[in-house]
């Protein structure tokens, strides 16, 4: 899978928040096989230095980071956060979030397109957190995005794929654009379902971090994503309404009496 100019083998992108401890986070990242993890920027206290320890841990894991603009509600906040992230993490990659609604954390797609344009023109590789809207997708592509990240369901909800029809339509309309389902995944079966639709990858966090055993769940997701991808490539059968016997009818002995 190619994301901007980077070739990536693992189709699971993992978030780094909400784990019971840094050690469990590290264990989960290793178990997931993820090559990309998402990170954020937050205020640093001069004395506590929480960020420095976290950054050391991530660097030890040897993974590529995808910084986010989580919590930004305006274009200006998101753009400034992206600029700060580029300097700290030394990457042009940015998971662009411009949040439009507090209860659903759904993206403000108008602000998203504007911020995506500003950042793309400034040399960023933008990974936009978006709804599955086809027109928004088109506008984001025009703005310079080469990867799209529609939500499955609201962030942290674990509800899976809320709009299968919309996700399928998005896949069909953009056959050559890397599509990553970002947010709302709760179970490996949800991730597998998205991969079976032909999605290129899954970005998730809470489903692993809040599992009773995050490392085992990370492994379960890795397997499910691999299985879903293999199923997609194997071209699934067409479903039908009525039964069709799988055992041959011809040659059945007449035993009814």
């Amino acid at each position: 899978m190619r994301l901007y100019d980077v070739e990536v083998a693992s189709r699971l992108l993992l978030g780094t928040a909400q784990y019971p401890s840094p050690a469990i986070l590290a264990e989960a990242v290793r178990a997931s096989g993820a090559e990309i993890v998402t990170v954020s920027l937050r205020r640093e206290s001069g004395r506590l230095r929480e960020g420095q320890d976290f950054w050391s841990l991530i660097r030890e894991l040897g993974v590529r980071v995808l910084p986010n603009t989580a919590g930004c509600h305006s274009v200006k906040e998101a753009v400034t956060t992206a600029q700060m992230a580029r300097e700290i993490f030394a990457t042009d990659w940015i998971k662009l979030e411009v949040i439009g609604e507090a209860d659903t954390l759904q993206p403000d797609v108008f602000g998203l397109v504007e911020a995506a344009r500003i950042l793309s023109e400034d040399g960023f590789s933008v990974f936009p957190y978006m709804t599955e809207d086809l027109v928004v997708a088109e506008r984001l592509m025009e703005a310079g995005c080469k990867v799209l990240m529609p939500w499955g369901a609201p962030i942290g909800s674990g509800k899976g794929l809320n709009n299968l029809f919309g996700l399928r339509a998005l896949r069909a309309h953009f056959p050559d654009v890397p599509l990553i389902v970002d947010a709302g995944i709760g179970l490996p079966s949800h991730a597998s379902a998205a991969m079976e639709l032909g999605y290129d990858a899954i970005l998730l966090n809470t489903a692993v971090a809040k599992a009773g055993d995050p490392a085992s769940m990370a492994r379960a997701f890795a397997l499910a994503i691999e299985a879903g991808r293999a199923a997609y490539l194997a071209r699934p059968m067409e479903p039908r309404d009525m039964a069709a016997p799988s055992t041959p009818v011809l040659g059945k002995p007449s035993l009814a009496g």
Binding site: G15, T16, A17, Q18, Y19, L25, T38, V39, S40, L41, R42, R43, E44, G46, R49, E50, G51, Q52, F54, W55, I58, P67, N68, A70, M84, I88, F89, I155, G156, N205, T206
Partner: peptide, 10 residues
């Protein structure tokens, strides 16, 4: 002034 550092994120 805002001073930020790397932190956990989703």
């Amino acid at each position: 002034i805002e001073i930020v550092a790397p932190r956990q994120g989703g």
